[in-house]
Design a protein around this nucleic acid. Structure first.
Lengths: 116, 116
DNA sequence: GCGATTCAATACGGCTCCGTAACGGTTTTG
DNA sequence: CAAAACCGTTACGGAGCCGTATTGAATCGC
């Protein structure tokens, strides 16, 4: 992308990416779910429910429910921490990695089309 | 942004933007609502319910409900088309423009921090 | 060892959104 | 000037997420 990156170019990029996702009609994540998913995949593990809740500034049930929903879609997996069995370790999945790969490609493709 | 724009940089940008929005705790739009809002503000008017439904590949009630929700937040406004009173013209609002301005700034700020 | 603490999950009532179908109001058609 | 077509909205039952409060399991502190 060029160094100059205008306001309307930023919004156009968001528009094109979100529009492509809506039109595709596939997985429809909320903003919260996306933020959780991206945090799991982009930040250093390990990820616990409590840790994610603090990072996102939301309550723990929000994380639990989001993991329920995304676990159902095989985007993330849960595992008990053997060292401290109170904790739950959130892990990546092949399905989740594929989804984010596709999402990243979508951003790059649309950015290129905008000559950014 | 540089011409080279890696996969992980794209996801990192999305992560930072969505995380900032979640942590902020303000308006929480679904992906569909965001796509509708950005279409209204980025594409050429006039915008009708039917036109938006076709553009986004969703049913009309989805648009009606999204306009209800975003109208309640003063992000968009509705007006009957005087020429053909069956149509509803969807219009921008000051509040909506401010929201998108803030969103665009968020993208640009995070892009700069990633040295894109 | 035993109470206090911490963890994730669950219960609960409420709200929003979903898709399908039906509905009134408006315009076009023949 | 009726019949058909079109537009946006509403009705309906179902599903998902919300925040708050509570639960059960595991660990810590004394």
């Amino acid at each position: 992308m060029s160094v100059e990156f205008s306001h309307s170019q930023a919004l156009r990029l968001l528009h094109d990416v979100s529009l492509a996702q809506v039109r595709e009609g596939g997985v429809d994540l909320s903003n919260r779910q996306l933020a959780i998913l991206l945090t799991i995949y982009m930040d250093l593990p390990p990820h616990t429910v409590r840790g994610l809740a603090q990072k996102l500034n939301v309550t723990k049930p929000v994380i639990t429910r989001a993991l329920d929903a995304m676990g159902e879609m095989d985007l993330v997996a849960r595992r008990r921490d053997p060292a401290d069995r109170r904790n739950v370790i959130v892990q990546r999945t092949v399905q989740g990695a594929l989804f984010l790969e596709k999402l990243g490609d979508l951003v790059i493709t649309n950015a290129r089309e905008l000559h950014l």
